[in-house]
Simulated assay, not measured.
Amino acid sequence: MCGRYSLNKSKIQLEERFQAEMLADFKPRFNISPTQLVPVITSDSPKGFSFFYWGITPGFAKNKPVSQKFINAKAETVNEKISFKQSFNTRRCLVPADGFFEWKKLGKKTKIPYRFTMADEQAFSFAGIWEEFEDEFGESNHTFLILTTSPNPLVSEVHDRMPVILKKEDEKKWLDKYSTEEELLKMLKTFPGDEMLSYTVSPLVNSVHNDNPAIIRKTSPMDQFGNYTLFG
C-alpha cells in the first residue's frame, strides 16, 4: 500500500525533470494524502501537469462517497480487474514524487513512520492510472490511483508492498497510447533497493493536517504517539 508521499520540489525543478508546464503558484508538498488535489502527468496531456484527486472510483460504482474510493491497485492484476482494466489500457499517468512513507509495526499498538527516497534524493514518478467519474452531485471529477507491487529488500523491512516506481527511461512509454500490454506490464517491476534510501521521520506525518518541512526531516525513531523507541 502507498498512503502518503511527498513532492518537495519547486515549479522549475519539476518542469525541468518532467518537461511539462506547471501552474505558476505551485508549492512543494510534504505530506500528500488521499482525496487531495495533486499534480499528475497524463497520457492525454503529457506536456503539462494536471491536478487530479488521489482516490479513484471504478466506472461501475458511480456516486460512491470518498471513504469508499480506492487509492492503490496491485500491479500484478491491474490488467485483469474489471474495475481497473480500462484505465490501465487507455488512461495512464505519472505521479511525480520525491519520497513516500510507510509505517513499521512493532507489536499491536506501536508503528514507526519511515520515509523512502531515491539515493540521490531527486524527483521520480509512480505508475498511476486515472479516471473521470460523476460524483454524487452530478459533477465530473478526475481522479487517480497509484500502482503497487512487491517490496524490494529495503522496503520489505517496513512493509509488504511498495509503489511502482518507474525508471526514467520508461516514463514516455508508460504514457504512450500505443504501448502494448506486454510492454506496460514489464515496466511494473520492483524498483531496486540499492538505488534508494530510508530513514525514520516524526509521527507528525500521521496527521493529514500537517504539511511542512518538519514532516520529511530525519528523526530518532518514535512511535505514533511521539514516544522514542530503541527500534529502527
Rank of each mutant, 00 (worst) to 15 (best):
G3N: 14
G3C: 06
R4M: 12
Y5E: 02
I12L: 11
F18M: 06
Q19F: 01
A20D: 06
L23G: 05
D25F: 12
S33Y: 15
P34V: 12
L37D: 15
V40L: 06
S43H: 10
S45L: 06
K47F: 08
G48M: 15
G48K: 15
F49N: 04
G55T: 09
I56S: 13
T57C: 14
G59H: 09
F60Q: 13
F60S: 13
K62C: 04
N63I: 00
V66E: 14
K69T: 13
F70W: 14
I71P: 02
A75T: 06
E76L: 08
N79L: 00
E80N: 07
K81G: 05
F84T: 10
F84W: 10
T90I: 04
R92Q: 03
V95Q: 01
P96I: 13
A97P: 03
F100P: 03
W103K: 06
G107I: 09
K111I: 11
Y114M: 12
M118I: 02
A119P: 00
D120N: 15
F124V: 02
S125D: 06
G128L: 03
I129P: 08
I129D: 09
E132R: 09
E132L: 08
E132M: 13
D135H: 07
D135A: 07
S140F: 10
I146S: 05
I146N: 05
L147W: 06
S150N: 13
N152C: 15
P153W: 03
E157V: 00
D160F: 12
D160R: 10
R161Q: 12
P163D: 08
I165M: 15
D170T: 00
W174K: 04
K177L: 12
L184K: 15
L188D: 00
K189Q: 13
T190R: 09
T190S: 13
P192D: 06
P192F: 09
D194N: 15
D194G: 02
M196F: 08
S198R: 08
T200P: 04
L204G: 11
V205L: 02
S207D: 08
D211S: 07
N212P: 01
R217F: 01
D223A: 04
Q224G: 04
F225H: 07
